[in-house]
């Protein structure tokens, strides 16, 4: 492979690099789509296969503010700031995931492997105010 690569014309290298990039993009888009689908399935008590990535989210009973708060969940997961109107401008799971990867350059490496942290019971430590978290 190395020999073949090293003997390749520069244009072939570019094509392969493009292919590799397309592949990683496809994986990233797929990862984001799967996460949103699972998130919605959980929150809407639907089965994941019943949620189609190419359908507008409003089809699943979400209103405008719901869409905004889902972006909040995505920010928590991805660890990046996103436009709160992301799902208004890209109203299907597929469009939103594609935008994030292709326009905001969110790469697989940037995606945390852990699922979203569930809401913890109130923490005992909030800096120097920790002693006051639980009453007298």
């Amino acid at each position: 492979m190395q020999l073949q690569n090293s003997s390749s014309k520069p244009s072939d290298v570019l094509v392969q690099a493009d292919l590799a990039q397309e592949n990683s993009e496809a994986i990233a888009i797929e990862t984001i789509q799967t996460w949103i689908v699972n998130q919605l399935a959980k929150q809407l008590s639907l089965s994941a296969p019943s949620i189609k990535v190419e359908e507008p989210l409003t089809r699943y009973g979400l209103d405008s503010i719901d869409s905004v708060t889902i972006v909040g969940d995505m920010e928590d997961w991805l660890g990046v700031d996103l436009p709160s109107t992301l799902l208004w401008d890209y109203p299907t799971i597929q469009k939103a995931a594609t935008y994030l990867v292709q326009e905001m350059n969110i790469a697989p490496g940037a995606i945390a492997s852990e699922p979203e942290t569930p809401v913890q019971p109130t923490k005992e430590t909030v800096g120097k105010w920790s002693l006051w978290g639980r009453g007298k």
Partner: peptide, 17 residues
């Protein structure tokens, strides 16, 4: 927004306080 309020509150740290 209520779920996010709880989530944000649970995550506060010394700096954000």
């Amino acid at each position: 927004q209520r779920r996010h309020l709880a989530k944000f509150r649970a995550r506060r740290d010394a700096q954000s306080m």
